[in-house]
Design a protein around this nucleic acid. Structure first.
Length: 275
DNA sequence: ACTATGTCCTGCGAGC
DNA sequence: TGCTCGCAGGACATAG
């Protein structure tokens, strides 16, 4: 379940592997593919371009593309981008053309280097699209300053957990890191966002950044493991303090961790440590 | 303008 | 052993 740190790690790994390579052609699988842009538009935008950079924006992976045929005298359109959202189970693998095409492979790019870049996604929550001047909305949590952070939650009656998951506010925080951040900040997930004090929000912002940074560091050491074919291996895990620990003792006070459902998502917290 | 809820999709593991 | 069922959850559509 890739959230910001996982996507960051994957994007970095892909950048070292495929930036500078050319895209010769793209195959898009069967009928109802997880596409946000029409297939012909994706193909037209990608084919015969070169990958300049691969980077992360929120939970999106952005491939910046350079046109190969730059002979037009007319003004060049804004730079084209291929946008990949991994959803829950999406993977991008760089592999040899001979290697077995996995079930649920939805896209295959033939690269100039002879390798292939494949998009595999069993659950099909992932999305492929193209853009010119991509804007994901929201603010990068690792770049936000305190004033803007506090502003995000002003007047919002929704539970703070839901606000953290809202990608239009902060982009990149998902279910796991939301729970972990709230635990570190001592705030219960159901607390209405607007009722949280400045000081608590300052703590929350610090916690969010800490948790994400720690996870990125952990991921950095295992890049090579899961950009590769067998992907699954090496999905790093931050030592979760609450997520997935229902009933287990809080690592601080030994109180059993509670699990509740907020907006359809499981949420974990310590009754005693979080208020 | 917000907020809450349902839906998509498949694989896996718990429980009988 | 083999089956059913619930759950995982990001983003969007829809309704209130």
């Amino acid at each position: 379940m890739p959230e910001l740190p996982e996507v960051e790690t994957i994007a970095r790994g892909l950048h070292t592997r495929v930036s500078g390579d050319g895209i010769e052609s793209i195959w898009l699988g069967g009928k109802p593919e997880p596409l946000k842009s029409p297939a012909h538009e994706i193909a037209a935008t990608l084919e015969h371009t070169r990958i300049l950079t691969v980077r992360r924006v929120g939970k999106h992976i952005v491939f910046d593309l350079a046109p190969n045929n730059v002979r037009s005298k007319k003004a060049q359109p804004a730079q084209a981008q291929w946008i990949v959202h991994l959803g829950m189970t999406g993977r991008l693998q760089v592999c040899d053309p001979q290697s077995e095409v996995l079930k649920h492979t939805h896209a295959i790019l033939k690269l100039k280097s002879g390798r292939e870049l494949r998009f595999v996604d069993p659950r099909r929550f992932g999305r492929l699209s193209v853009a010119h001047g991509f804007d994901a909305g929201g603010i990068e949590p690792l770049e936000v300053d305190l004033d803007r952070f506090i502003n995000l939650f002003r007047g919002r009656k929704t539970p703070i957990k839901s606000a953290l998951l809202n990608q239009k506010l902060l982009r990149g925080v998902g279910n796991i890191y939301a729970d972990e951040s709230l635990f570190r900040a001592g705030i219960r997930p159901r607390r209405r966002a607007s009722t949280i004090t400045r000081d608590q929000l300052a703590k929350l912002m610090t916690s969010v950044k800490e948790v994400l940074k720690e996870a990125i560091v952990l991921g950095g050491s295992s890049i090579s493991d899961y950009v590769d074919a067998d992907g699954e291996e090496g999905f790093f895990q931050l030592q979760h303090r609450v997520y997935g620990r229902e009933g287990e003792p809080c690592l601080v006070c030994k109180t059993p961790i509670k699990r509740i459902v907020i907006a359809g998502r499981s949420s974990h917290y310590c009754l005693k440590c979080q208020k």
